[in-house]
Design a protein around this nucleic acid. Structure first.
Lengths: 142, 142
DNA sequence: GTCGAAGTGGGGATAAGTGGGGAGTTTGGT
DNA sequence: ACCAAACTCCCCACTTATCCCCACTTCGAC
């Protein structure tokens, strides 16, 4: 269960410290890949594997499905936390998310998202204004 | 589990270094053959055998199936990694994929694809804007 | 204030990618 | 049958990147 928001810095080698609270659930390994809205998604290994099976099972004869498959697997990286609880963000993924030195690490219950601070600011500001209506729309789900 | 995208160079002898992360899963031997969309496919030996059975079982009376069968088996090469973790790409397969000096090695979860860099660029540029929808589709699978 | 845990930063050992030399085999021609 | 050319495969060497480890700093708790 990943909860909370943390601001951490990348070092010169592109390493990002994972919040200590998250580490035990990610100790088996993680998969980092592109997320929605230009963030990065970090999945615990077990969660990724169920996801990967579904993607792998897609028809090979459908060109769209082939392309989808390629992007999912080619842009994903599997890693393990280093002894300090950090992961390396490869340059391609940093570019995709616009992350330079600072990053926001966000718990999303079953997985973790990583954001460029400015982008995170914009989105959460937008949500605050629209908060009432969004909440109203989604309240029925509870 | 093959994940990620790597740019490697062929040497003058047509050898290609397999990313170190992939080697343990390919140590038993590999089969290199023509892939879809003018790339090359590299299968671990065990995965190839199950694939070969399926292709073998295709109807011999269907002309398309016969032709597919020929393409798969006639152009396939079985190899083992050399002591440096490299494989040789035979000239016919290089010509098929348009590979000269550089190549992109792509993890596809259960197997590996090898691309000419320009061709890979084109394909990924085509879906670059679709990146968000890919992530969306991925999210829906969770 | 002190202690401990967490975040941050860098040095050095180790492995990976790349390139080339050379022994042993095969191939094809004379 | 012999030789020469081509090929394969193993080994060595160099450069670069990766990872592990150690050390400093900051922050919160007691």
């Amino acid at each position: 269960m990943f909860l909370g928001r943390f601001s951490h810095n990348l070092d010169a080698k592109g390493r990002l410290a994972i919040p200590a609270k998250f580490r035990s659930e990610l100790a088996e390994g993680v998969v980092v890949t592109r997320g929605i809205d230009r963030c990065l998604s970090v999945y615990p290994l077990a969660a990724w594997q169920t996801l990967a099976e579904k993607v792998s099972a897609l028809s090979i004869s459908d060109p769209d499905a082939r392309q989808f498959k390629r992007m999912v697997f080619a842009e994903a990286m599997d890693e393990t936390l280093d002894t300090q609880g950090r992961i390396v963000l490869p340059p391609e993924l940093r570019r995709y998310a616009g992350i330079d030195r600072e990053a926001v690490v966000v718990g999303m219950n079953t997985y973790v998202e990583i954001w460029e601070p400015g982008r995170w600011e914009n989105l959460s500001a937008a949500v605050e204004d629209a908060g009432a209506s969004i909440a109203q729309r989604l309240a029925d789900l509870i």
